[in-house]
Structures are given as structure tokens and as C-alpha cells.
């Protein structure tokens, strides 16, 4: 393999492992390291020494290890020294916030479906899934003044379907919340 090929392979492998960074950050890292390698090669050539590209590249270590050092501090910040609890608290707060909004979102939708199914049992005339405008819109309403020219589509089927939907959303929300909780530290 020629010197150029070695360099190209190393940089493309590094680029692959930097893929979690945005393009500009990864590009800057590649450009900087390429500039160093080419400089080092030139210096050897100018001094009339044989160019041992493997040795030059070995100073950077395996592309994966090199990339992970950049990825670590760019994506997560420098790991805080022990005792720096303030920084950790912020990360924990963010995850808690996410967990909480997920809980509100999921349970709210489940509750709406559940209530929809139950109310249909008591006010079958006033609530339901309707199509209006010749099937161009579908609406769920709870009103005694229905859309003009609308037609109810599901009828009593709305009750089991809404309740099944409610259960599925409940289960899904619980699963997602449990997964999020695992990610909290």
C-alpha cells in the first residue's frame, strides 16, 4: 500500500467513527489530523529519511479510540471531576423532565380514549365518530347539534375500539416510561 492509501484509509475509518458528530465538527477534526500527518510525512522526506507511515499513524492510535475521545467530550462534555454534582443534576433534571412529559402525554391520550368509550355507553346519540362532507372529514364530537349532513360510522363499535385503544396506549406508555427510567441515573 502506498503512503497516500494508508492515510486515506486511516482518515476514512476515522470519519466513520466520528459519524455521531455533526458534519462540520467531524470535518474539522479530519482536516486537522490530515494536516498533521502530511506535515510529518513532508518533514521526513525533507530530512531524507524513509517515511514510515505506519509509525506516524500509530501516534494517533486506532481510529476508533481517537474518535471516541472527540465524541466523548463533544457530545457529553468533559466528564466532571468527582464532587461536581451540579453538572450531574442538570442531566438528571432533563431526563426527569422528559419522563414527566412522556407520562403526561401518554396517560392523557389513554384517558381521552377511555372517557370516549365510556361516555358513548351513556350518551349514544350525542357522541360518536362521524363523517361529514361526503366522507371528506371524519370527526369525533360530543354535542347534540351534529354536523350538517353527517353520518355516524362506528356506532356502538366505538365503545370496544376506544377501550382497546385506551389499554394499548396505557401499556405502551408504561413500557416507554420504564425504558426512560432505566436511562435515568
Amino acid at each position: 500500500m502506498s503512503v497516500r492509501t494508508h492515510i486515506r484509509n486511516y482518515l476514512s475509518s476515522l470519519n466513520k467513527y466520528l459519524s455521531r458528530l455533526d458534519k462540520a465538527d467531524a470535518g474539522e477534526v479530519i482536516k486537522e489530523i490530515e494536516s498533521h500527518i502530511l506535515d510529518a510525512v513532508d518533514a521526513r522526506e525533507a530530512a531524507g529519511q524513509p517515511v514510515d507511515i505506519k509509525q506516524i499513524l500509530s501516534g494517533f492510535g486506532p481510529p476508533r479510540d481517537l474518535a471516541s475521545q472527540y465524541v466523548d467530550h463533544i457530545l457529553t462534555g468533559t466528564p466532571p471531576p468527582k464532587g461536581f454534582n451540579a453538572i450531574k443534576k442538570i442531566t438528571r433534571g432533563v431526563t426527569k423532565g422528559l419522563w414527566f412529559s412522556m407520562a403526561v402525554f401518554g396517560y392523557l391520550i389513554a384517558a381521552m380514549l377511555g372517557v370516549l368509550g365510556l361516555i358513548k355507553l351513556f350518551f349514544p346519540q350525542d357522541i360518536g365518530l362521524w363523517t361529514a362532507a361526503q366522507g371528506n372529514t371524519v370527526v369525533i364530537t360530543f354535542t347534540d347539534a351534529n354536523f350538517p349532513m353527517s353520518r355516524e360510522v362506528l356506532g356502538w363499535w366505538l365503545v370496544p375500539l376506544a377501550l382497546i385503544g385506551c389499554t394499548l396506549v396505557l401499556l405502551l406508555t408504561r413500557k416507554v416510561l420504564a425504558a426512560l427510567k432505566n436511562g435515568m441515573n
Binding site: G59, Q69, H73
Partner: peptide
């Protein structure tokens, strides 16, 4: 120190 130590450190100091 090696290249693999210096460059990521320079990048971190720059970001800080």
C-alpha cells in the same frame, strides 16, 4: 505525549 492524546485535548480546551 502522543498525537492521539494531544489533539483531542486541544479540541477540548478550545471548546472550553
Amino acid at each position: 505525549l502522543s498525537e492521539g492524546t494531544l489533539y483531542p485535548l486541544l479540541d477540548r480546551l478550545k471548546r472550553e
